[in-house]
Amino acid sequence: MLRVSIATPTGEIYSSDIDMILIKSSAGEYAILESHIPIVSTIDKGYVKLRTGDNEKFVAINSGVVEQSTNIVTVIAQEAAVADSLAEAEAKLEELHQSMIEENKRKARDFAISEKDLHQNIKKAKAGDLI
């Protein structure tokens, strides 16, 4: 039995006991079973597959590190999404990525607009310069 925990900057998104983890990155793929020697590897863009019995879970990952020692696997990813199939996980990750960018753009725009409003109002009220 392996213990796996997947952490992103927004917290731990998945944690469970599994039989096998398969790591796929652009450099190739390998799997970790119980009692593997301590290992570290990186994922630039790829996924990990978690198998427990017949049950499989996929986690699509952008920029991550996989570390295993004493049967505890830690996957650290800047962006990650969990789903039941690979296609689903990848779609979810892509959506997450896009929505983050969109959200960021929207907020930056909103901020610029309100900032402009504020400056105009200050000018109108003759309240002086705002640094």
């Binding site: 450099a27 020697i37 301590p38 990186t42 590190v65 570390e67 800047q78």
Partner: peptide, 22 residues
């Protein structure tokens, strides 16, 4: 922990450090 570096220690370092800084 005495780690095995899958893909070589150098390549791991190259990937992990920029991430770490961010």
């Amino acid at each position: 922990s005495l780690y095995e570096f899958e893909g070589g220690a150098q390549s791991i370092i190259d990937n992990v450090l920029p991430m770490y800084v961010e």
